[in-house]
Design a binder for these strands. Sequence first.
DNA 1: CAAAATATGTCAGCGCTGTTGCCATATCTC
DNA 2: GAGATATGGCAACAGCGCTGACATATTTTG
Lengths: 173, 173
Amino acid sequence: METALHGKHKAQAEAHDAEPMFDLIELLFFAYRDFVGDADRLLESYRFGRAHHRVLHFVNRQPGLTIAELLDILKITKQSLSRVLKELLDQNFVEARAGVADRRQRHLYATAKGRKLALDLAHLQSRRFARALDALPANARQDAIRFLMAMIDPSDQDEVKSLVWPQGARPAP
Amino acid sequence: METALHGKHKAQAEAHDAEPMFDLIELLFFAYRDFVGDADRLLESYRFGRAHHRVLHFVNRQPGLTIAELLDILKITKQSLSRVLKELLDQNFVEARAGVADRRQRHLYATAKGRKLALDLAHLQSRRFARALDALPANARQDAIRFLMAMIDPSDQDEVKSLVWPQGARPAP
DNA sequence: CAAAATATGTCAGCGCTGTTGCCATATCTC
DNA sequence: GAGATATGGCAACAGCGCTGACATATTTTG
């Protein structure tokens, strides 16, 4: 009953007659652990955790983000967000301005202080990518981008694309 | 003062005169989130968390692992390990046998039940890799392996290599 | 306009998983 | 026999995810 419709990794796609890809599973685990470890060490000196990092990162990347949009990106609950957001607001890494069109909304912006920390963290993590890519052929960067994108749930890929490569900033409210 | 000694990504390696690689940073975040999400859903039905998964995974992969070796791989503290290991032992997913050469050591083995769960989880995660690779050129698997390995701390790469591609099983104690 | 829907805030409480510090026991090595 | 080692256990704490319930301001809708 075989057809030609299957992809080239057919055997691997049919879970139980293929060896699991232990190598990829383990390498992704170790790579991600080291990747977040870089940021963890810097965050510690601010007494921030990973949750603060994620909020600050996306607010810095998308100035004017609302609470609801942030919740959608992070896929966490309001309560989990508000704990860390409150600290970022109190300590002046992020500021919130009421929406103009809809005054219920709070648009979030990184302050100068917040932008600096967000950039420091991004540079740290970029250094790891740069070191890795330096040891690989020139096309490795594009290959890595395509691989990581393909690993994301297909139903989310379009959304991630527009988040990662935004098409024109939104006007300030 | 430039020399020819720098790598081909020199500009990116010098943190503060290069744009951070926001795309890679964000893609790795989303890819890893979806990757562990697969396992999370299955683990939930056993009332296990990610920590249980990691312990079960490495014990299954390296039968006869001792506590100290496991702590070294996972880089967590004894207390964090013993909580989840105790549950895996109590519920018969893992069993411990005293060492023969050194009776202080406890060598850990996945039971049949434990091996089945470990394999189910690995198959789940392999399916995501298979789906991703299916959409990419034939060399994507090797490229991904090389990329992920390069992302790991260079000082740990040799250790990870021998862990991911073991060179001959150890004799049962 | 009144009612319903929406965006957000807040509180109490819980679960998982990481941490430190300290002490106990069995065993091995010198 | 003394000291090092492998492991176990307890208390306490932190970070960050969750749910459920309730409050407020604002916008939208019938």
